[in-house]
């Protein structure tokens, strides 16, 4: 674990693995609920990191927090902890065929593998309600498109690297589209508005039969910013 200062009053906790980062996030949230991190404005997970954003008070408050975190060793995440959300998916995305080719399996098998494992929201970003979900094994990690599409429909279920993501609204995107859902991921009438918050467990339920399609190449544009879905 490394503690890296960020700006005047934030601290980045860096871990060796994504699993450790998720354990730290859970533990930091628990600690805040119990009132011991009240000086921290926001706790923001990343892939291997958790940011403690905006520690109020004098510089000594930040130093004290650093010293305290140095003694932490959060327990690992219990596999079935965290709220569970089930998301119905039609596995008929424009890139299902291409993903099947990359994995060396049939499109039906992509749907079976993807819906057969439990996913977990590691962190959010890119857009309100966009969750980066882990759960697929290393053999099923998927490169993103070299050139993103100019428009990906809202509700698209997509893969990139180790992650599954669902586009909350229509936007440009470079992830491989394997299916679609009609679930509303961002609803301001809901508290919190995001359906998928960090730490949420997710199961994808196949609905309809997966159609096999050739890899889509339509609607792509020049190089997009890496790191964006």
């Amino acid at each position: 674990m490394r503690l890296l200062p960020v700006g005047e009053n934030s601290l980045l906790v860096e871990l060796d693995t994504a699993q450790e980062a998720q354990s730290w996030y859970v533990e930091l949230l628990r600690s805040r609920r119990e009132g011991s991190l009240s000086a921290v404005q926001d706790i923001v997970p990343g892939d291997r990191t958790v940011l403690l954003y905006g520690v109020s008070g004098p510089p000594s408050a930040l130093a004290a927090l650093r010293a305290e975190l140095g003694h932490w060793s959060p327990p690992g995440i219990v596999a079935d902890s965290g709220p569970l959300v089930e998301i119905p998916v039609r596995y008929d995305g424009a890139d299902l065929g291409e993903v099947a080719r990359i994995w060396g399996v049939t499109p039906q098998e992509v749907a079976r593998v993807h819906s057969g494992v439990e996913h977990r929201v590691a962190f959010c970003g890119f857009a309100p309600g966009f969750a980066y979900m882990t759960g697929l094994g290393e053999e099923h990690h998927t490169p993103r498109h070299a050139a993103p599409r100019t428009s990906v429909p809202a509700g698209s279920v997509a893969l990139a690297g180790p992650y599954t993501g669902i586009y909350p609204r229509s936007s440009p995107g470079g992830w491989q589209l394997i299916g679609a859902t009609s679930v509303n991921l961002w609803d301001l009438e809901r508290e919190p508005p995001a359906l998928l918050t960090p730490g949420t467990r997710v199961r994808f339920l196949p609905c309809g039969s997966p159609a096999s399609r050739p890899a889509g190449t339509e609607g792509r544009q020049g190089r997009g910013e890496r790191g964006q879905p």
Binding site: D42, V44, L51, G54, A127, P128, G129, P192, A194, T197
Partner: peptide
């Protein structure tokens, strides 16, 4: 609207 960064806001 600080405080919602973990949701991507």
């Amino acid at each position: 609207r600080p405080g919602h960064a973990a949701l991507g806001v």
